[in-house]
Design a protein around this nucleic acid. Structure first.
Length: 275
DNA sequence: AGACGTACCTGACCGC
DNA sequence: TGCGGTCAGGTACGTC
């Protein structure tokens, strides 16, 4: 699930951990996408969760000891908060036991996610953080920024949206949804996007991501008891996974770009006549 | 420097 | 029911 809206929803669920004290760090599987560093054991007993934060698709948990944990969910990663810590499930890789009988669990079937730990100030300097482009929901995102970044790009806009160094937070599902909403063809090259299209793209980015967060938000209530899945997402997609569906007389089509599926509606997302 | 294919890993699903 | 093939929401890396 994890694109910006899912990560944001997860983060909101983690807020209930603030103020809780660490009882135990338990690594079940060290080898994720990267090996969990031994600095994980620097998360000491009795240090308190001071703050949780989202940077792009990364979740940061800051402790009052000055250390921070970074979690990336990869393709299949999930964070759960369970009330009883004695039972683990398949693909549970990491447990953070806290007081008030809360345990944070990282579960990831495909192990494409990772966990990193270091002093907060060092964490912020990690390459995977510093190289990120502007957050897709940032108010600093405007056409001027896009022109600077992609005004000369030969890369199709679908691929640009997935480039975290340009815009961070958008993944393969919302890239298709956003382009559909903006009525922009996924094939248009960056340099051929007109300013007007960039502005409608930015509008759609905000609209689609915010809507998704809002829908995900309904699951927060049950976060501590459930597995945090965002049930009714799939039914809300206009084009993603909707090959063959008809939208005002036009069919949704699936293509593969750069090895990733793109869903779009050729009738409504025309390639502009590039002058 | 930038663009592209590939690799990482497991599960779900489809057709036979 | 089982087998093989294909696909999956992300990112880094080697190669050109």
């Amino acid at each position: 699930m994890p694109e910006l809206p899912e990560v944001e929803t997860t983060l909101r669920g983690l807020n209930i951990l603030i103020g809780l004290k660490v009882i135990k760090v338990h690594v079940i599987t060290k080898k994720l996408r990267y090996t969990i560093p031994n600095t994980i054991f620097k998360i000491e007993k009795n240090s308190k969760v001071a703050k949780v934060e989202r940077i792009a698709k990364y979740i940061l948990i800051h402790f009052d000891s000055g250390y921070s944990i970074v979690i990336h969910l990869g393709m299949s990663g999930r964070l759960k908060i369970i009330n009883k810590s004695n039972k683990t499930y398949k693909h549970d890789h990491f447990l953070l036991k806290l007081n008030k009988s809360k345990t944070l669990v990282f579960n990831d079937a495909r192990k494409f996610g990772f966990i990193d730990v270091d002093k907060s100030l060092i964490i912020y300097k990690r390459r995977y953080i510093t190289s990120l482009g502007i957050d897709a929901l940032s108010l600093k995102l405007n056409s001027k920024y896009l022109i600077k970044k992609i005004g000369k790009s030969e890369v199709p806009i679908k691929q640009i949206l997935l480039n975290q160094k340009i815009l961070s937070g958008i993944g393969n599902i919302y890239a298709s949804e956003i382009l559909f909403d903006a009525k922009i063809s996924p094939f248009v090259k960056g340099r051929l996007l007109k300013t007007k299209q960039m502005n409608s793209l930015i509008k759609s980015i905000r609209k689609i991501l915010k809507k998704a967060i809002k829908l995900g938000g309904s699951s927060i209530r049950d976060y501590s008891s459930s597995d945090g899945t965002l049930g009714n997402f799939q039914s809300k997609f206009f084009v993603y996974n909707q090959e063959g569906k008809t939208i005002s007389k036009y069919k949704v089509k699936k293509v593969v770009q750069y090895g990733r599926s793109t869903y779009y509606c050729p009738g409504l997302q025309k390639e502009q006549n590039s002058n």
